[in-house]
Write a protein that binds this DNA or RNA. Sequence first.
DNA 1: CTCCATTGGTTTTATATTGCAACCACCCTT
DNA 2: AAGGGTGGTTGCAATATAAAACCAATGGAG
Lengths: 147, 147
Amino acid sequence: MVKRTSHKDDPCPVARPLDAIGDWWSLLIIRDAFEGSRRFGEFQRSLGLAKNILSTRLRNLVAHEIFTVEPCADGSAYNEYVLTDKGRGLFPLLVALRQWGEEYYSDSYQGTVQLVDRETGRPVRRLELRSDDGRLLGPDDTVVVGH
Amino acid sequence: MVKRTSHKDDPCPVARPLDAIGDWWSLLIIRDAFEGSRRFGEFQRSLGLAKNILSTRLRNLVAHEIFTVEPCADGSAYNEYVLTDKGRGLFPLLVALRQWGEEYYSDSYQGTVQLVDRETGRPVRRLELRSDDGRLLGPDDTVVVGH
DNA sequence: CTCCATTGGTTTTATATTGCAACCACCCTT
DNA sequence: AAGGGTGGTTGCAATATAAAACCAATGGAG
């Protein structure tokens, strides 16, 4: 859908997924899906984007196996878009984006939107990256090898 | 830089950061920065993108306080782009993207590019989201409140 | 069963962004 | 002062995006 020139053949695993989710709307669509949206109209109303764009994005996401199209669960003959395992695998990414956004872009409505543990209702911790022996790791504690 | 219509005023903390990092190149620039790139030319050579695009992106990233422009450390009168705290805060997001990419887009060069613990040289664990009392949480164990 | 609103799109057209290439200014070396 | 590398900016053509109109198939009300 986008004429990618260079970074499709970038061997780095950071670069290749961008073909699937690297645009403005796709992540928001996926976020909505995590919050329960399934139908075309739900996404459209929630996001307020043009229908042709939504159409294109959904097609792309389905092509990348992030969504599957399935007959609507509640009888009606329409379709619904449901996250695949691969799609649900994006959960940490969404959380990372959300936490970063909470930290740096929450003016005034601070804390009004929050990710909480469903069981206890309490806010979750920050995402943690750990070594295989359990130490917490930051940006300077890691290296990329084989690049 | 982009005529954002709707999702700028989306109160969700997932949506607002997209103005800063929601395009194809910005994340790759930031990735390179985490791996040590600092100068205009380094980014350009590494990514192979047009100079005007890189220029625009860097300006945008600086405007969003993800990079600062500083006089080059090694004497030469040029500038270098260095990550701010806010920029380094994107580390988990990059890791999330990388791990997802490793899992779903690694054909053949499986394992050739890896994020490892600098100290031990061993691959890191997957990112973990935990409740405040330490339980591991998945997509279905959390809710967004106040939305 | 007929009308009408809703859903789920596609097509058309205008506008904004992208990417390439050329250009330019500045510093550094010779 | 000539030449090469660095760090950009400025056209211009191609491409993607957005808004709006259009349309076909459903679903519901009477």
